[in-house]
């Protein structure tokens, strides 16, 4: 019975956390975009536009669902669901604090990568199912991008696994206890000096994997109308947007856990979930910041970045990390 109550409270907690984030990250993004572009952003609905997400949600929900005549109906309808479900599911494995994790997985890191793979499939289904040329092009683009960036991301994740010796996310955080100089983002003189490189590659890849600008070639609105989202209106579009934000939260949580010491305090006092959230929201803010600062890359620039730079660098990084571990 205790277990049932625990499960229920985690379920409600995660749903609330997710709902809050999905609503207000949109607000943060619009506010951030506004201020970066010397505008106000949303400001009419409520103080500082704080009720804007509710108004947006109501608008999206009250819209009629239209399935295009040329669409492949089952794929068209299933794609948003497939985009959303894995993103929500992944919160099961994220440890927010010492012992605050819905389900302790020995292979938490592997699980996150396994289910994150569904996001590409969802975009493909959306792109194909819409029966629209632009959507189809966007689908192929997103998939080539996801394949390209998943490889360096996995390889750099392996360096972290190598120096901590486990794939258990809580254990990885415990390994970084005591002061910020123990975090994996900094060169570790007991195992590997190259951890900043790993962090950089991982962060770039997580940005590309969540299809965020400057890597948002899937919905490049200047060339592809809205990419795979072109034919989606109302809540179909809304669910895709929510899945994108959920993926961002997951990606930033994972970066926090792997490189920034999760719930550990920088000075070794009072560790707790608040530090996790501070780091995670800082990384999310960096995502927003970069989205509105950098122009979108071209498709070839993007693929070259992965295949010609990130993959060789991550492979060399892996080999050198193995060497460092052997030497120290």
């Amino acid at each position: 019975m205790d277990e049932l109550i625990r499960l229920l409270s985690y379920f409600v907690g995660i749903a609330a956390f997710l709902g809050f984030n999905l609503a207000y990250l949109g607000w943060v993004e619009r506010k951030g975009a506004g201020h970066i572009q010397r505008r106000n952003g949303p400001k009419e609905v409520g103080p500082y536009g704080l009720i804007q997400p509710l108004a947006d949600g109501l608008k999206l929900m009250s819209k009629q669902l239209i399935v295009p005549a040329a669409a492949d109906k089952p794929l068209y309808m299933a794609a948003p669901i497939l985009a959303m479900v894995p993103a929500v599911l992944l919160f099961v494995a994220i440890p927010f604090g010492e012992g605050i994790v819905p389900r302790q997985f020995d292979f938490g890191l592997l699980m996150i990568f396994a289910f994150a793979a569904f996001a590409g499939l969802a975009v493909l289904m959306a792109g194909w199912g819409s029966g629209n040329k632009y959507s189809l092009i966007a689908g192929t683009r997103v998939v080539s991008q996801n394949i390209a960036f998943e490889i360096p991301m996995l390889i750099t994740a392996i360096t972290v696994v190598m120096i901590t010796g486990t794939m258990d996310l809580s254990e990885i955080v415990r390994h970084q206890a005591g002061g910020f100089w123990h975090w994996n983002i900094f060169p570790r003189f007991d195992s590997s000096l190259l951890m900043p490189v790993s962090f950089l590659i991982f962060y770039i890849c997580s940005m590309a994997e969540t299809n965020r600008a400057p890597f948002d070639l899937g919905e490049a609105e200047s060339e592809l109308v809205a990419g795979y989202l072109t034919e989606y209106g109302g809540m179909g579009f809304g669910i895709f947007m929510m899945a994108e934000y959920a993926n961002i939260v997951i990606g930033c949580s994972l970066t926090t856990i792997l490189f920034l010491g999760g719930w550990q305090c920088p000075f070794g006092i009072l560790p707790g979930p608040h530090w996790f959230f501070i780091k995670m929201y800082f990384l999310i803010w960096c995502f927003v910041w970069m989205r509105w600062t950098f122009p979108r890359v071209t498709l070839w620039g993007l693929l070259n970045l992965s295949w010609k730079y990130l993959i060789p660098f991550s492979l060399v990084n892996l080999l050198l990390t193995a060497l460092f571990i052997k030497v120290f």
Binding site: F105, F107, A114, W128, G139, T140, V143
Partner: peptide, 29 residues
């Protein structure tokens, strides 16, 4: 066997299926 399960998803869904879909999209619209 959670390890095998996760690997199954990562490799077969994440890599094999996506590559197959990709190939179909490029070859026969």
């Amino acid at each position: 066997s959670p390890f095998v399960a996760m690997m199954q998803l990562l490799i077969y869904v994440g890599a094999v299926c996506i590559t197959m879909t990709f190939a179909i999209m490029l070859a026969e619209p």
